[in-house]
Amino acid sequence: MDIQKNFGLRIKELRAVKGLSQEALSHKAELDRTYITSVENGKRNVSIQAIQKIVKGLDVSFSEFFTSNLFDA
C-alpha cells in the first residue's frame, strides 16, 4: 500500500476511535468534508498545513498520529 492510502486509513482509524463522523472532523479541522473523504480514500497528496489541521481536529499529537504499523517501511 502507498503512503497516501495508509495516511487515509490512519485518519479513519483514529476518527472511529474518537467517534467522529467525517463531517464532525471536517468542522474541527476547518476543512471541507469532501476533502476529508478524498484524503481518507488516498486520493489527495496532503500538505503539511492540512496534516496539522487534521491532527489537531483528531485531538492527537503528531507522534501519536504517526505511531502506527501503517507507516512502517
Rank of each mutant, 00 (worst) to 15 (best):
V39Q: 13
E13Q: 06
F65N: 01
D59M: 11
A50K: 08
T37W: 14
F66A: 04
D32K: 11
V60C: 00
H27C: 01
K43N: 15
V55Q: 03
I11H: 03
L25I: 07
H27F: 02
L70Q: 07
R33V: 07
S61R: 08
T67W: 08
N69H: 09
K28M: 11
R44Q: 15
I54T: 05
F62Q: 11
R44V: 02
V46H: 06
K12T: 10
N41E: 12
L9G: 01
R44S: 12
S21R: 02
L31D: 14
S68V: 01
K56T: 15
F66G: 02
L9T: 03
L14W: 01
R33D: 08
T67H: 09
L31N: 14
A50T: 10
A16D: 11
D32C: 11
V60S: 02
T34Q: 15
G19V: 04
V46C: 02
E40Q: 05
H27P: 06
R15I: 09
S47H: 07
V60I: 03
L20M: 05
L31E: 09
G42I: 10
Q49E: 15
K18Y: 07
I48R: 14
K53T: 08
L70Y: 05
I54W: 12
R44C: 05
V17P: 04
I36H: 12
I48L: 15
Q52V: 12
T67M: 09
V17L: 09
N69W: 02
D59R: 06
N41R: 12
L25H: 14
S26R: 10
K28L: 12
L58D: 00
G42P: 04
G57K: 01
L58W: 00
L70P: 00
S38D: 15
Y35N: 06
V46F: 02
T67N: 12
L25F: 10
F62T: 13
E23C: 08
A24F: 05
R33T: 12
N69P: 04
S38I: 09
G19K: 08
I11D: 07
T34W: 13
Q49R: 14
S38P: 09
Q52T: 14
L31Y: 12
I48K: 14
D32G: 14
L31S: 08
E13M: 02
L9H: 01
K53S: 15
S61E: 07
E30V: 10
I11L: 00
L31P: 09
K53R: 15
L31K: 14
Q49V: 14
I36L: 03
R15A: 06
V39H: 06
A24V: 11
Q22W: 04
T37F: 09
K53C: 03
R10N: 05
S26L: 08
Y35H: 11
D32L: 14
F65P: 00
T34L: 13
F62C: 11
R10F: 06
S68K: 02
